Computed example of a mutant assay.
Amino acid sequence: MHYYVDVIKRYADFSGRARRQEYWMFVLVSLPIMVVLIAIDFMLGSYPVIFWIYNIAVFLPTLGLSVRRLHDTGRSGWWYLVGLIPFVGWIGLIVLMAIEGDAGPNGYGPSPKQLQA
Rank of each mutant, 00 (worst) to 15 (best):
I53P: 06
R19L: 02
R75C: 01
Y54K: 02
D41M: 12
S15F: 03
Y47N: 09
I56W: 02
L63H: 01
S30G: 09
Y3A: 12
N106K: 09
A18F: 04
S46W: 14
P48V: 10
P112W: 02
P105Q: 08
V35D: 05
F14Q: 13
K9Q: 03
R10Q: 11
G83L: 05
D13F: 13
W90A: 10
K113I: 04
V67D: 02
G101M: 09
W79L: 10
G109E: 09
G45I: 12
V35C: 11
I53Q: 12
R20Y: 07
K9D: 10
V29C: 10
L65M: 03
V67T: 03
G92S: 15
Q114L: 15
R10A: 14
S111F: 03
I33E: 09
R69M: 01
L96K: 00
D13S: 14
D6G: 07
G109C: 00
G64Q: 03
M97Q: 04
Q21C: 09
D6P: 02
I40V: 15
F87C: 13
H71C: 04
P112C: 02
A12K: 15
M34I: 13
I8E: 02
F59P: 02
Y54H: 06
G89Q: 06
I56F: 07
A12N: 14
I56M: 13
L28I: 07
W90C: 11
K9W: 00
K113E: 08
G107Q: 11
R19M: 04
R10E: 12
H2D: 14
Y3M: 14
T73S: 01
F26V: 01
L44W: 12
Y80F: 15
Y23K: 03
I91D: 04
Y80E: 14
L31Q: 12
V95P: 08
I38R: 12
N55H: 07
G74T: 01
E100Q: 13
G109K: 04
P105V: 14
E22T: 09
I33N: 11
L81A: 06
Y54D: 09
V35L: 15
K9T: 03
I85K: 10
D72W: 00
M97C: 07
P48G: 07
I85W: 08
G107E: 10
A12P: 07
R75T: 03
L31R: 10
Y54N: 05
W52R: 13
F14Y: 11
I8A: 05
W79H: 06
L93W: 05
